[in-house]
Nucleic acid binder design. Structure first.
Lengths: 224, 224
DNA sequence: GTGCGGCGTCAAGGACCCGTCAAGGCCGGG
DNA sequence: CCCGGCCTTGACGGGTCCTTGACGCCGCAC
């Protein structure tokens, strides 16, 4: 069903969680400390992380900080500390839920279900491929028919915004905001100029775009 | 910042929440009972709902059930009952978090921030499906029999207003207001022209609409 | 039957938006 | 200093979309 990474140094609790989560149909990966947690999170690509704040090596919030820049799934924090200050800190550090020990197992499972229900199906694809060109977001490179093509910084910023939302329409305000900044919300000129350049460089027939479509009055859409 | 709908019958608590949420930069809409909650949720399009389970008219889970078919934002449940059984029921009924009274205000705010943060990362908007066409609110795309259909901005604005309230009647004043602006409350002409265009593009038999119904003198209704 | 109000349809005009091109300015490298 | 990318800006033609008015239909009240 889903892969759960459980981070805790309490062997007893770890064992109980493993059994219960397995019984609920989840695949379980465990880590006994912070370093292992970061390692396992990178290796196993879990759907959700259950993180105990009291770890032997790292502080729980440090693990959270190490996770958050790239891990987009939900994180449920376990802690013995019930002080609301701790809760606020953990939640603001990127946690999605905070459960104090001792906790009821059924409640934990229900909270996990709630978090997983929200999980979206867009796990940040690093490389986008079409019949005519490929866009490697990580390497910052696009190739057309296997041949690398150079893009200017602005062209790249615009293309990556569109490619990150395949099939979805991206509003012109949003494009202008994230490529040129909030002060340029009305400069739809730029969009026209740069989509034309992108089409010239990427589309097989720039006059009749097949991938970079424009929706008059609304925005642009990349369709793979 | 964000629009919060607070549902509670305790006037004291409602007042405290309103003040605190306003201070945190949120726009606050309130409802004292379940019926008003459903009404306000439809009218105000809140980003998040804070729902007390103990209401005078409806049970909280009934409100949740009425909300969930179409409201996709997060719902934070408040309750005086700390039994884990109640928590599990609420979470499985569609709640995203469960906080027991009495609660710490800072923690509530942090949990709201956490819920809203998710919304901005992964705007999980709904997809409305009928036998003949589908409307993807997030991608801003409608397909009829599998083929994408282009809608103009106005057509889209009108359709999304109707589709966001499936089965419910939407008054002409409300439609005109949210699509064309408050100054156009009397231009029912526009509604006739654009519903006709939508029907031509979406309905299998535009002359005998099956999904976009007219309620003479009142408004329009989308029935899935 | 007759009048009336609300609705659906159609078409035309004008405003708006888009694609295109090219000139000018800014900046860094040679 | 000059030169070449790159970004900005303006102008223009063509197409799209919104607005607006006219017309006929239907249901209802009288």
């Amino acid at each position: 069903m889903s892969r759960v990474l459980v981070v805790d140094d309490d062997v007893q609790l770890l064992r109980a969680l493993r059994i219960t989560l397995r019984a609920a149909g989840h695949e379980v990966v465990t880590a006994p400390d912070g370093a292992a947690a970061l390692r396992e999170a990178a290796a196993a690509h879990p759907d959700v992380v259950v993180l105990d704040l009291g770890l032997p090596d790292l502080d729980g919030t440090e693990v959270l900080a190490g996770l958050r820049p790239w891990f987009t799934g939900p994180v449920l924090v376990l802690s013995a500390r019930s002080d609301s200050r701790d809760k606020v800190d953990a939640l603001d550090a990127g946690a999605d839920d905070y459960v104090t020990k001792p906790f009821d197992m059924d409640e934990l499972l229900a909270r996990l279900r709630s978090l997983l229900r929200r999980r979206s199906d867009a796990p940040a694809e690093p490389v986008v491929v079409t019949d005519h060109f490929t866009v490697d977001l990580a390497a910052r490179q696009v190739t057309v028919d296997g041949v690398p093509v150079r893009l200017t910084p602005t062209e790249w910023a615009l293309l990556s915004e569109l490619v990150r939302a395949p099939g979805r329409l991206v509003g012109q305000k949003q494009l202008l905001q994230s490529v040129w900044g909030p002060a340029y919300e009305r400069e739809t000129n730029y969009l026209r100029v740069y989509t034309a350049q992108l089409r010239r460089k990427l589309e097989p027939d720039p006059a009749h775009p097949r991938y970079l479509h424009t929706e008059p009055g609304m925005g642009y859409r990349f369709t793979p």
